[in-house]
Design a protein around this nucleic acid. Structure first.
Lengths: 342, 342
DNA sequence: ATTAGCACTCGAAAATGATGAGTGCTAACA
DNA sequence: TGTTAGCACTCATCATTTTCGAGTGCTAAT
């Protein structure tokens, strides 16, 4: 038995219905609510075939059918309607994201909030890894007798501040040191900085020997420790509105997963870099999310792939709408971050 | 009918039992499990009296009794056992909080995590309001052609960084300006800074007229906008383990409340500044938390009241243990923050 | 190939009933 | 007079049964 046009039409109708009602859908309701032009009996036969093909499944004998993972996959790949985002929602997104924010972080935080709010699911976004951007400038500012603020500026205009507990020193000395560091380190990524690199700086500054000996180990440790990728999550609690999360245990497991930065990173970073990706159930690659789906995309900074943006929700999500939102936000972010030093 | 020693003993037993089982407690179990030396019938009579006194209540006719708000109040005020924290837990807390952290923020974040973890409930902590600390130093660091980092240092050694979108200028000019600002503003709190104060700075720097005209409105807006109190929340999801939050709706309402910075601030800041406070149900002063309890305390920085720390959980919480933890953490924080410029 | 008809399945919801923890009251007792 | 044993009564909880209906698969007629 092979799959034909009509079977696909029925599959689409079933999935559409299930997505909006969260109830197994039977032949009668299908015949009634969708203009398929065939009777429920015929639909029944086709549904049995679709089940044999592994695209549908039955929770129990006398229930309707629900889509299987493979069913959703086929739906997403070939059946679903790719709706574009409404004009007014586009406006809203642009307005909020383009309202004069100075820092990339702020824009990204706003974006993830928006994404969660619009989709009613959980949104996740990762920031470009600071480690991988090239250093442009290094500064140290004396805050008080015990504290110095280290400022690392990247060539894309992002910066990172790191407070250091360093005993008294004067600003001139700090400036000399950071000037030397900047000339040695400019153009390198943080990952590139090795013990040797730091050693060369020391030799430039023999006059401040003692202080340098004190400072360098601290800087070495600092550079070594800047490696966490920032991930922002929003709308975790939204899932409580969905029928599939009505058991507290289920919800709790989801929350736990969403609190694990590593798991999220793993899930975000897996797979192709390119366009927009829809991961269904086990495709996500994480047991805890085996009955969820994820839509993710990479946004760009200066036309280079930078961070990832994703929506996570039940398998039964409105793929069409969600893809549209993720795509539009990805596009808007990439546009905002294109070619400008914020 | 007045309240006597025995009634109090029974009340205490009931509350102790209810706290650990979350089940209405009846006369028989009470007689069986507690060495009260009287029969269940007598206990029944006393319980009826306690109910008349408004200290107990009955979910329905044929159930046991549960404590009322007033019952808990009496329990907390006069009956409960004030347990001290175990030696090893004390060690753990000290070790974690005193491990060389440079910033007050970091210590506080660690503290709130600990508090949530130890109590198994939700922990909230507010940071000292930066607005109210005296300015010690002001710096501006040029990040790149479009961006300047404003650094405000308080006399307690805390600082705040604020990125400003300011077009090109050179570091010398920025230094001149911040020197002037520092000498004018040192010792003031941010709240003290008015339009007039800013005006006086301008007159000091007539030579940079144009740039000042450009800069001042930005600074004015910046100062005006630094007024949010930071609040950290941890362990919101812990409540899902408690029987009183097994209905999703209930949990959701709680989560929503915990996400509202304003509500939390309101609740934290209300009432006396002094020692440790236990707020039971409606005493919290927030409808959404009317069936929760909160234990809160103020910690000190440099021996001045600074931020608040609190645990929020169901009315049926282990008050003795929770008070002990909150108290110990408050004390440890105050100690860490005493007299030292971090 | 399609569909009407029918017997059958099985979960969900409602109805029923047993259980038992709990109460209040009364009367007997120390 | 305070305490307690005894008893009738209440009522949530749980298990069992019943009913209901949406849904299925199969067969025979179109």
């Amino acid at each position: 038995m092979d799959i034909n046009e009509r079977k696909l039409l029925i599959l689409k109708a079933i999935i559409d219905d299930f997505i909006s009602t969260a109830q197994p859908v039977g032949s009668r309701t299908l015949a009634k609510n969708y203009p398929l032009g065939i009777s429920s009996a015929t639909i029944r036969n086709e549904m049995a075939d679709l089940e044999d093909l592994g695209l549908l499944q039955q929770p129990h004998t006398s229930a309707g059918r629900i889509p299987s993972g493979r069913g959703y996959r086929m739906y997403v790949d070939t059946l679903m309607k790719h709706s574009a985002l409404g004009r007014n929602q586009q406006e809203k997104i642009r307005a909020l994201l383009m309202s004069n924010m100075i820092e990339l972080d702020d824009v990204v935080k706003q974006a993830v909030k928006l994404l969660a709010q619009i989709t009613g699911m959980t949104a996740v976004i990762s920031l470009p890894n600071f480690n991988l951007s090239k250093l442009e400038n290094i500064k140290m500012v004396k805050i008080n007798e015990q504290k110095v603020l280290l400022i690392l500026v990247s060539d894309s205009g992002e910066f990172k501040t790191i407070p250091l507990g360093i005993n008294s020193s004067n600003q001139q000395v700090l400036d000399m040191i950071t000037d030397a560091m900047t000339s040695r380190l400019r153009g390198l990524t943080i990952k590139d900085i090795t013990l040797r690199t730091i050693g060369t700086i020391k030799s430039d500054l023999s006059e401040y020997g003692g202080f340098i000996d004190y400072l360098m180990p601290i800087l070495r440790d600092t550079f070594r420790d800047i490696d966490q990728v920032e991930v922002y999550v929003e709308g975790v609690h939204n899932v409580l509105n969905l029928p599939e999360f009505q058991e507290v245990g289920r919800a709790q497991a989801f929350f736990d997963t969403m609190e694990s930065r590593e798991k999220l990173c793993e899930v975000l970073d897996s797979g192709d870099g390119g366009g927009i990706a829809v991961r269904i159930g086990p495709e996500i690659g994480l047991d805890e999310l085996a009955d969820c789906s994820m839509i993710k995309a990479a946004y760009k900074v200066n036309n280079e792939p930078a961070g990832r943006i994703a929506v996570i929700g039940p398998m039964r999500m409105d793929y069409g709408a969600s893809v549209a939102v993720v795509d539009y936000i990805r596009e808007t972010l990439s546009e905002i971050f294109s070619g400008i030093n914020l």
